[in-house]
Amino acid sequence: MSDGGPTGRQRVEVDAAAHGVAVEVVSRPEADSLEAAADLLGLTPSDIVKSLVVKRHDGSFLFALVPGDRQISWSKLRAVVGVNKLSLPRPEIALEATGYERGTITPIGSTTAWPVYADERIVGLRVALGAGEHGYSAFVDADALIAGYDATVADISD
Rank of each mutant, 00 (worst) to 15 (best):
A113T: 01
T44K: 13
H57L: 10
G109K: 04
T111L: 03
D69Q: 14
G68K: 04
V116Y: 00
R9F: 01
G8A: 12
R102T: 11
P107S: 05
L86S: 11
G4E: 12
L62F: 08
P29I: 05
A131Q: 03
A128C: 10
Q10G: 01
A37I: 10
P91W: 06
A17K: 05
I93D: 15
A22P: 04
A36N: 01
I72R: 08
G4P: 02
V26E: 15
V80T: 11
L34M: 14
D150Q: 12
P115N: 03
D3Y: 06
G59I: 07
E35Q: 15
P107Y: 03
P115V: 04
W114M: 00
A118I: 01
V140H: 09
D69L: 09
E24W: 02
S110W: 04
T7G: 04
A144Q: 11
L95C: 06
H57R: 11
K76G: 05
T98H: 05
L77V: 10
W74R: 09
A138L: 03
S137W: 00
V153K: 11
Y149Q: 07
V49N: 04
L95N: 10
A128F: 04
G5D: 01
V116C: 07
V21D: 06
K55M: 10
E96H: 10
V14H: 07
P89L: 02
I72K: 04
S87H: 11
H19K: 13
A79C: 05
W114E: 02
A79M: 08
V153W: 09
E35M: 07
A147D: 15
P6E: 10
V23C: 02
I156S: 09
S110E: 05
R78H: 08
D158Y: 11
S75R: 13
L65V: 10
